[in-house]
Simulated scan of single mutants.
Amino acid sequence: MPRTEPTGGAEALAVDAVTVELAGARLVHEISLEAAAGQVVGLVGPNGSGKSTLLRCVYRVLRPAGGAVRLDGDDLHALSARETARRVAALSQEHSAEFDFTVAEVVAMGRLPHRRGLGGPTDGDRLRCTEALRRVRAGHLADRGFLSLSGGEKQRVLIARALVQEPRLLVLDEPTNHLDIAHQLEVLALAREAGPTVLTALHDLNLAAGHCDRLYVLRAGRIVASGEPHAVLRPELLAEVFGVRATPVRHPATGALQLLFDRLP
């Protein structure tokens, strides 16, 4: 079940009236949201609603045209790249590798922000990487070339790299893409167990309902609803925003909210 108590390695996130403009078009309109230390906060919304654009501002690929992103009160865009990398890890939808690094080498990149000078990986770094691969059930892939992996295997390796970075904030853009259902559940559980604050965009509303403490619903670059999943994922809102008929039910074992979907008549 979701927990909301602060975790020692987590920091509070505040997105304050962030606006994003690209090529003269405004894609995000003065969005404000909060994630308390240790919370898992989800962004949901139809394609093109601005979820990924907003996340890119949070992990500093884009600079907002207005507003600020703060982590424990510090403006993330005012921090050095090294300091940001020590506090924020991101898993984006787009990832590429020009060189065929081994899986072990890819995961070890997550330790770079913590190294001093030109020193190589320590024994502690190696142990962290081995453990992260074990946790995502990818230990057997350590010597494989990253480019030889399937989409789901690559996703698990990149999640391991984010975990060994030991961030205070973990930003995940559709982290369950390419994963089978067992690994989808494991990845979201691992993100919570790792301890950081988590901000994630999810398409699967049932995963969002079961794993997030709080949800923000986006449409056309604006927040149209926010709150705990059971209060946000109402049939009338889902019909308006997603264009589907939703029937809420309760999981027979956990009592968690689940949704059954049909096309609107």
Rank of each mutant, 00 (worst) to 15 (best):
Q155S: 07
P196D: 04
L118M: 10
L13Y: 00
E105R: 01
P64K: 10
M1Y: 12
Q184P: 06
R135M: 14
D262A: 15
G255S: 07
C129F: 06
G45V: 05
V249C: 11
A78Q: 13
L76T: 01
A23L: 08
S148N: 06
A189G: 07
G9Y: 05
A208D: 05
R192G: 07
G110F: 01
V198Q: 03
L260C: 08
R219Q: 14
V20F: 11
A35N: 04
V107F: 14
A65P: 00
L112D: 08
A104P: 03
L207A: 05
G42P: 11
F99H: 12
Q258C: 15
M1S: 13
V18K: 03
D72R: 04
V157A: 11
G66P: 02
R26G: 07
R137E: 15
L79R: 06
I159Y: 03
A12L: 04
S92P: 12
V69M: 02
D74P: 00
A89I: 01
V15E: 07
E236Q: 13
V187G: 10
A220I: 01
R116L: 07
S150M: 04
L169C: 00
L172F: 08
R26Y: 05
L233H: 09
P167R: 04
P229Y: 13
A25Q: 15
G139E: 15
A37F: 04
A81E: 14
A14C: 10
A10S: 12
V217F: 13
P121Q: 08
D74K: 03
H178L: 10
T254A: 11
E228P: 13
H29D: 12
V241F: 13
T102N: 00
A85V: 01
R222L: 03
V106C: 06
A220E: 14
R115A: 05
G210V: 03
T7M: 15
L170N: 02
V40H: 12
D143P: 02
V157Y: 07
E30H: 11
A14S: 12
R128I: 01
A90Y: 04
L112G: 00
R134L: 13
E30W: 02
G48C: 09
L112W: 13
L205M: 12
L71M: 00
L127A: 15
L238W: 06
A23H: 13
E228T: 14
A256N: 08
E153Q: 15
N206R: 01
L158Y: 06
G221I: 02
G151D: 01
A108S: 13
L218Q: 05
Y59P: 01
A78W: 11
P229N: 07
V88A: 04
A65G: 14
E105A: 10
G210N: 13
T197M: 07
A81W: 05
V20T: 10
P113C: 01
L147I: 01
S148V: 00
Q165G: 09
L62K: 03
L147C: 02
P113Y: 02
E11D: 05
E30V: 01
A138C: 13
V217P: 09
R56Y: 09
L207N: 03
V103P: 02
L188S: 08
K154E: 04
G110V: 00
L62F: 14
G227C: 09
A65F: 06
K154H: 04
H178G: 05
A182L: 09
D100N: 13
I181M: 14
H114G: 06
L33R: 02
A65I: 01
V241Q: 10
D262R: 11
R111M: 03
L179A: 11
I31Y: 06
P6Y: 10
